[in-house]
């Protein structure tokens, strides 16, 4: 449905905004490398089922997300490594990995490798933006491109919420994906303060600065 398609394209847009920023400014300043590595982990653990993905739409997006994320990490770790400031990227990701790992082991739909990794990926994605938001907090401001990147990334999962509501009412056979919905709502909540600042500042053409 339209919400989900808009969400997936918002996700794709966020990746291209980030790529554009890094290549245009020839710098990855203000971008959390830790968050990008977490997203890489999210895609790998979620798309283990890539080989037998039946819908071409999903297949194409999965390939796009994995390949573009790999390229972003290459750019940050190799090409523009000097512009990476690890002293600003100090969030303890082990807490996030522990959080996702614990929930994946406690409440998977089924105790199979695919399902446990899928649940891990869903929970990890819900908190993967924290290092990036934390870095933003520390620097106190961000380039407009970085703010657009985070906004598009946040919008992607926010749009999945009406998608789930729509599917609940329109597809009688649709069973609610409780893990995805719970994590999706948590994820969107984590973006809420950013969205507020983004909406009030950037929409007025101002530079993105925290109050």
């Amino acid at each position: 449905n339209i919400f989900r398609v808009l969400g997936d394209f918002s996700h794709l847009a966020s990746i291209f905004i980030l790529l554009h920023k890094i290549q245009q400014l020839k710098s990855c300043s203000g971008i959390s490398f830790k968050s990008q590595v977490l997203y890489m982990l999210v895609y790998i653990t979620r798309y283990l089922d890539l080989p037998w993905t039946s819908s071409p739409y999903n297949f194409i997006f999965k390939v796009l997300f994995i390949s573009s994320e790999l390229y972003i990490i290459y750019l940050m770790a190799r090409a523009y490594k000097p512009t990476n400031d690890p002293n600003l990227d100090t969030f303890h990701v082990e807490f996030l990995l522990g959080f996702a790992g614990l929930l994946a082991l406690l409440f998977p739909y089924k105790y199979t490798i695919l399902e446990v990794f899928w649940a891990f990926s869903i929970w990890l994605e819900s908190v993967a933006i924290l290092p990036q938001l934390f870095m933003l907090q520390r620097t106190g401001e961000a380039e407009a491109m970085t703010a657009h990147y985070i906004a598009a990334l946040g919008m992607y999962r926010a749009l999945y919420i009406p998608n789930w509501i729509y599917r609940y009412f329109s597809e009688p056979t649709h069973k609610v994906d409780t893990i995805a919905v719970t994590a999706g709502i948590l994820q969107t909540i984590l973006y809420s303060d950013f969205f507020w600042i983004y909406y009030t500042k950037v929409m007025r053409g101002e530079k993105f600065k925290l109050p």
């Binding site: 996700h11 089922d49 993905t53 039946s54 819908s55 739409y57 999903n58 999945y160 994906d177 995805a180």
Partner: peptide
């Protein structure tokens, strides 16, 4: 975009 068993969303 239905998928058997697996998850049909990205």
């Amino acid at each position: 975009k239905k998928e058997e068993g697996g998850h049909d969303e990205l």
